[in-house]
Write a protein that binds this DNA or RNA. Structure first.
Lengths: 220, 220
DNA sequence: CGATCGCCGGGAAAATTTCACGACGGTGCA
DNA sequence: TGCACCGTCGTGAAATTTTCCCGGCGATCG
């Protein structure tokens, strides 16, 4: 491990999976894994104390998720290099991750070579997107699926989040201090803007776009 | 690798993750990974040709999912030993997996020792459940959450699946060759039986119970 | 200043959900 | 055999919700 080795921080809540990253990266000369984190908060702490050249970050994690961790790390170090490595094969997550400041997005279905290649690219200052996500992004463009975060106003987005999280229209109206009628109107407007006909479709869209994750659903 | 080594088939659609299993299991004497599969169909083929002593199986995979793969393998070999190793920490999936014939259920958040221990237990003929899932199962018992598959009649369950998968009531009525009114009635009855007030809650419940997985949502 | 946009809600029509009810076939049981 | 029960399907009417159209208010922009 020469002084020129690139240092890496691994972030994934599954220890056996981190073991896999390690194994793959060890075979590559010039890379050195110096730390591992199991959630976003720990990742942030370790980034500050270890100052790695690169972070490989999973998205779905307990507590602070990967997207938020990316945001925080980038806020602390504007030049941080973060490669997102996740199971989510939908374009919505990729867009969110890149906007949050990630320099790459690779899915876990990719072969090890793709991961290694992406690591090298990001270290070289390039943006790395795995081929399947490139394709997804192209498709979502073609399908013209409106990304919720873009087409919705802040208030509408807030209502959407509450609709997915809370239960009744009345409860949401109360927490927002507005009339139930307004919530109902917004609810309808949101479905219209997103081009969905039913609440079930709405939830599906939200999941696809990463507004809601499967783990979010469980805890409520 | 002595002749007494226990042979193992790894099934996971993420190659880097399989690498992790390998790495962990290799450190354990007496175990030998003889094959890897990336989806349920391949797992079934390889089980038949390789006849491993144990299968370590992920659940969420493209095409034939893990549950179905467990079912098929067990159908072909009633004494197959399958350990499910997955990210899903909800009791619903565990119940489904065990009913399908799995001999163990361990979550990926578990430390490597737990996985190794479970492998040994299953090989010894025991049923292995990781502590977090034990806890989840206990909770779901206490909460008395009615499991959809139990409380719903076959027809109702079918309608529920279609509600989550298809779009409009009319489409479902057509595929089922019944009146849209009947579907609406069933829809209402289902929500009543499951104790949910809105469609959004319905989707959430379905996700918790593993009737629907996040990947299912994406492809429709 | 006029135009636009986000936000809030009322009113009324339109659609949906819910409820009560009946019919039919199958099953189990005395 | 008769009876009660359950699952499935459907109708009609009431209750509720969704949707559409409307106006008002404040902020922003050219």
């Amino acid at each position: 491990m020469s002084a020129a080795d690139a240092t890496i921080l691994l972030v994934d809540d599954h220890s056996v999976v981190r073991e896999g990253y390690r194994s793959v990266l060890q075979k590559q000369p010039g890379l050195r894994v110096i730390a591992e984190a199991a959630d976003g908060a720990e990742a942030y702490r370790l980034y500050k104390s270890e100052a790695p050249d690169l972070v490989i970050m999973d998205l779905s994690m307990p507590g602070i998720g990967g997207i938020e961790a990316v945001r925080r790390i980038r806020q602390w170090d504007k030049s941080a290099r973060i490669l997102v490595f996740t199971m989510h094969e939908n374009a919505g997550f990729a867009v969110q991750a890149i906007r949050a400041g990630a320099r790459g997005y690779v899915t876990k279905t990719s072969p090890p070579e793709t991961l290694v290649r992406a690591v090298m690219d990001v270290l070289a200052g390039k943006i790395a997107i795995s081929p399947d996500i490139d394709h997804e992004l192209a498709l979502s463009r073609l399908a013209g699926e409106s990304s919720a975060a873009d087409v919705l106003t802040p208030r509408e987005f807030e209502v959407l989040r509450l609709l997915l999280a809370e239960n009744t229209t009345e409860e949401i109206a109360e927490t927002l201090h507005v009339s139930p009628k307004t919530v109902a109107n917004l609810h309808s407007l949101i479905k219209d803007k997103l081009g969905v006909g039913s609440d079930i479709e709405l939830v599906r869209l939200a999941l696809r776009q990463g507004i809601l994750t499967e783990v979010d659903l469980g805890e409520a």
